[in-house]
Design a protein around this nucleic acid. Sequence first.
DNA 1: CCTGAACCTTACGTTCACGTAAGCTCTCAA
DNA 2: TTGAGAGCTTACGTGAACGTAAGGTTCAGG
Lengths: 154, 154
Amino acid sequence: MSTETLRIGDLARLAGTTARTIRYYEEIGLLPDGGARMAGSHRLYEQADLDRLLDLMRLKSLLGVSLDELKELIAAEDARAALRNELSRDDVEPERRRALLTQARDLLERQLELVRLRAADLDRLEEDLEGRLGRVRAKLAEIDPAPVAAIAER
Amino acid sequence: MSTETLRIGDLARLAGTTARTIRYYEEIGLLPDGGARMAGSHRLYEQADLDRLLDLMRLKSLLGVSLDELKELIAAEDARAALRNELSRDDVEPERRRALLTQARDLLERQLELVRLRAADLDRLEEDLEGRLGRVRAKLAEIDPAPVAAIAER
DNA sequence: CCTGAACCTTACGTTCACGTAAGCTCTCAA
DNA sequence: TTGAGAGCTTACGTGAACGTAAGGTTCAGG
């Protein structure tokens, strides 16, 4: 009835992970149960699920947070999903819509804050390494018996 | 005889970690045995050891690498340490010095490469999140019954 | 209808990165 | 010299994040 056309193996391949990981994420509440299904039948996913999974993996690897912390961070997608879901039905209920949007906004702001902190740390590290590298190169240049390489410099 | 004045507890406190972690890092070869000591006596550290430990922790958290990967990455400090150590004695041996500097340079370049890749990924994520946040804010502004908050905006 | 690949659940196993406990030892200040 | 606090070694424990195996089920294609 919807565009649910991916099986767990497909999803895993597309996301570059394993079926076990996807089931585990579902188990701990990071991913919703793939398609409301009765116990035993195959999980079915759609594009949105892939997006969410990719988002999760990206946040995890780039922010280095635990799956538990991740659960709180990505509640924004839940708000988005709920919104999209309730909009498809016709009872919009503006109060609710407003609450969902506000929540999504707050969580996105939190994610951005973390990302920017990390980026700043990485910048500092980069400058640090550049400094050291410069000093090492200088010492090498001093001693270098063949300063010809100055041209072939990268 | 040297400036070795820190005990493991001090080092741990200064680095914001635990003594257990430091012993573990030594165990797996990430940190040298604190001061050539005979079995049973206390480990002694100096400033350089603190620096190295802080470096390790920073690379670990910012690059998200395993301690094993870290071992290969920070071999640069070993080269630096060896250099400093051999320079204090007077037999410089320029061949050796050159080799150490070259090795340090290569490893620093590798670290920088990884840092820059990560930074680029983080940038993409940041832009992504900014985009989403913008869209959510726009929707909120549409629906907003009290656009007064535009002034109190952060 | 039938088959085989992919999936299901359940449950135990594994690796990493330490935590924790026990029993003993070292160090340093009083 | 001595006492206590920090450190030492050894060894088992732990939580997170999955891996893997077993035995049964579902589902798409022929």
